Lab assay of single mutants.
Amino acid sequence: NQASVVANQLIPINTALTLAMMRSEVVTPVGIPAEDIPRLVSMQVNRAVPLGTTLMPDMVKGYA
């Protein structure tokens, strides 16, 4: 099963992502692949992401 990127904390809108904000977890539906975590660092979210939410490509500016 593919691990996805999950929010490790509440991430406010327009926040630049850091490693501490993300974790890898096997979830359904599948979100951004966990191997993309290094690429996500310093990218901004375009909405508030609650703790435990799977990051989807449309939630991260410049990812999709």
Rank of each mutant, 00 (worst) to 15 (best):
Q9D: 11
I37C: 03
R47I: 14
M22S: 01
T54M: 04
N8V: 12
S4M: 03
Y63C: 03
A3Q: 06
V49M: 05
N14E: 13
N46W: 13
E35D: 09
V6S: 03
N14V: 03
T53Q: 10
V26G: 07
I32Y: 02
L17K: 00
A7G: 03
A34K: 04
Q44I: 11
V26W: 05
V41H: 07
Q2C: 13
E35C: 15
A16H: 07
Q44Y: 14
L51E: 09
M56L: 15
A16R: 06
P29L: 07
M43P: 00
A3M: 09
M21W: 03
M56N: 11
I13C: 05
L10D: 15
S24V: 09
T18V: 09
G31S: 02
I32W: 02
T53W: 15
P57S: 12
Q2M: 12
Q44C: 09
V45C: 06
L55E: 01
M22N: 00
N14G: 08
M59T: 08
T18I: 07
E25R: 04
A64E: 07
G62Y: 14
Q44H: 12
V27Q: 05
T53C: 04
V41G: 03
N1I: 15
G62W: 12
T54H: 03
D36K: 04
G62R: 10
Y63P: 04
P50F: 14
V5G: 02
L55V: 08
E25G: 06
M56R: 10
L10W: 10
P29Y: 10
Y63N: 04
I11C: 03
P33C: 04
G31Y: 02
P33H: 12
L40Q: 00
M22E: 01
Q9Y: 10
A20N: 09
Q9M: 13
L40Y: 02
V6Y: 03
T18W: 03
M56D: 07
A7C: 03
V60E: 00
T15Y: 15
M21D: 03
Q9L: 15
V26C: 09
N46P: 03
T15H: 11
A20K: 09
M43G: 03
V6H: 02
R23P: 01
V26K: 03
D36P: 01
T15V: 11
S24I: 15
N1F: 15
G52W: 07
I13F: 13
L55D: 01
Q2H: 12
V30Q: 09
R47V: 12
K61T: 07
T28M: 07
V5T: 09
R23L: 05
L17F: 03
V49D: 01
N8Y: 12
E35G: 09
D58H: 07
T54A: 06
N1P: 14
Y63D: 03
N8C: 04
L19E: 03
R23K: 04
L17S: 00
N14K: 05
R47E: 07
K61L: 10
L40R: 00
P12H: 10
V27H: 03
M21Y: 05
L10E: 13
P57C: 15
T53A: 08
L19P: 04
I37V: 13
E35N: 12
P12V: 11
P12E: 07
V49W: 02
G52T: 03
P33F: 08
P50M: 13
E25V: 05
V5L: 05
R39H: 11
V49E: 01
R39N: 07
T54N: 02
